[in-house]
Design a protein around this nucleic acid. Structure first.
Lengths: 196, 196
DNA sequence: AGAGTTGTGTACCGATCGGTACTGAAACCG
DNA sequence: CGGTTTCAGTACCGATCGGTACACAACTCT
């Protein structure tokens, strides 16, 4: 064997970033291959060679979203106290879902909440992604209970579910066009329910 | 002129109900005319004659959803106190989004959060529908402030936005498969933030 | 240079998309 | 009965869907 072949003529990272934005703005089913490849600046053939197919492209775009716009979640759980974790998480959600020059809302929510048969795999990918976020928060809160940071009787799962629910609601409101300032007020209000 | 023509061979109300369920389960873009008419038990021709087109069918399905599964909102604002309004609203959201034999989640949320070009009208219809719910709640809370039911300094708009946000979050969680009992706990937790 | 390998562009695939023209069938009226 | 009106089914429309076959270009290796 010999020869490593022709190098690709585009930046795969940039192309994936562009695809992520299209999925974010239009959802999985609303983003056609024509929309995606036009934004990525490549042809369908190149997309299939580089990323597999539409579903794989979506999976990779979500992974990029996870470590990019959604990375506030990982930073949040590193806060020293559970209260600060929740504050950072909700503030991060507000900021990411209302970022200028980015689609309003959250890819992990509006990417595919309900779908027809062909969009079912993407929907399930997002269900798993959202549940994973809740699990991460729950484990962090459980640790906080063990450390005495949260009251002994605190239900970590319930608290995590609450914070995640508010974050998802914020994402929906952002998709409706609600402003960053208004959503930050919502986040502040939600924290009034914090256990004593 | 004479003759009133052949009567339609199907129940338009039943057909609309079936269409509503398909939109609810699959979203606007995920619901094809083939899916819709199969569920409605009629042909495309009959659907167009009776309802106009897909977008009009969606509009009418949403109207039916509004006075059916989503009617808890109207009942909620009739509660005697603002606190009871919020309780009824959130409990109603929990119950409707987790109703057995119905799609999980809320048609007004997952019907179309993000969409491609062809789904933009439906998306805007839902944005308006959601904003309308918030306005209704806000007016009710404003009245509660005037009546002395809520503290004088209460920001009715902010409170309404908060309650709506939690309700939307509940809808997202329900679409992910979270149980009714867990979501009722979320609703209860959210109400801990209620103004003194 | 030549062989081997891989990316790219075109042109195309069958299937499905939302929507409609047309033909009868089924009802009402007189 | 005939005449009129409306609904229903078939068959079809152009456009777009996600995906691919194929020829060729561009690179590395010997």
């Amino acid at each position: 064997m010999s020869g490593t072949g022709r190098p690709r003529g585009f930046d795969a990272d940039e192309a994936l970033h562009a695809a992520m934005l299209v999925f974010w703005r239009q959802g999985y089913e609303g983003a056609s291959l024509a929309d995606l490849t036009a934004a990525m600046g490549i042809t369908k053939t190149s997309m299939y060679a580089a990323f597999g197919n539409k579903e794989e492209l979506f999976r990779k775009a979500l992974a990029r979203y996870d470590v990019g716009p959604a990375s506030y979640g990982y930073r949040a759980v590193e806060q020293p106290t559970a209260r600060e974790v929740a504050e950072a998480f909700l503030t991060g959600a507000v900021r990411t879902t209302t970022q200028p020059n980015c689609p309003a809302g959250c890819l992990g929510v509006q990417g595919s909440l309900a779908a027809g048969e062909s969009g079912e795999p993407a929907r399930e990918i997002l269900v798993a992604w959202r549940n994973n976020g809740g699990r991460m928060l729950e484990e962090r809160f459980r640790r906080a209970v063990e450390e005495g940071d949260l009251p002994e009787e605190t239900d970590a799962g319930r608290l995590a579910l609450y914070v995640m629910t508010v974050a998802f609601g914020i994402a929906v409101q952002a998709a409706s066009g609600v402003s960053r300032a208004d959503l930050q007020e919502v986040a502040d209000t939600a924290l009034l329910a914090w256990p004593a």
